[in-house]
């Protein structure tokens, strides 16, 4: 039995037909064609599908679509503004935090939520924030480095009156 849901995704109201048993991840990927959020396990273990729901990072494979209706959803696709990559995205590239790339969007969403709440995290805090995101390629070191570099870049930007998220 399909129903019509309105999802506020990346600042826009989008309608999707879905069954009440379907996950937010499936609706994002299959109905709304937002495939940046990846399906690595579909059992809330790998973090590849991490999005923000009302500002909090969640594994979207574990959120049923009725529970996401009329709430704010932010996906990886919204992070770059007018084609300019977010500092976390740029630093992930520059520091070598991206290899196969499959965990990368979810990883970046977790880091994004962290830096918004804690602009100056310790390495331990970064590791804790991304500990729900499994990466099989990098060993995490360069990801931690990228988040640290992004934090610095964002701090400098806001210090210069720039718009840090």
């Amino acid at each position: 039995m399909k129903q019509r849901y309105v999802l506020r995704v990346n600042g826009r109201d989008l309608e999707a037909e879905a069954g009440a048993h379907e996950s937010l991840l499936d609706v994002l990927r299959e109905r709304l064609r937002l495939t940046g959020s990846k399906k690595g396990c579909n059992e809330a273990e790998c973090g590849s599908c991490t999005v923000l729901l009302d500002g909090r990072p969640v594994v979207s494979c574990l959120v049923l679509v009725p529970d996401a209706a009329d709430r704010d959803v932010v996906t990886i696709e919204a992070l770059a503004e007018e084609g300019v990559p977010h500092p976390i995205q740029r630093q992930m590239v520059e520091q070598g935090g991206v290899q196969c790339g499959y965990c990368t969007p979810g990883m970046i969403m977790s880091a994004y939520a962290l830096l918004r709440d804690n602009p100056d995290p310790t390495d331990e805090e970064i590791r804790f924030a991304i500990s729900g995101n499994i990466c099989r390629c990098t060993g995490y070191g360069k990801i931690v480095k990228a988040v640290r570099a992004a934090a610095l870049e964002m701090k400098e930007q806001s210090g210069n009156g720039g718009a840090a998220s």
């Binding site: 990886i76 590239v93 196969c100 790339g101 969007p105």
Partner: peptide, 8 residues
């Protein structure tokens, strides 16, 4: 790498 980081 960039395309991967953008989720594209």
């Amino acid at each position: 790498a960039l395309e991967k980081a953008l989720g594209a």
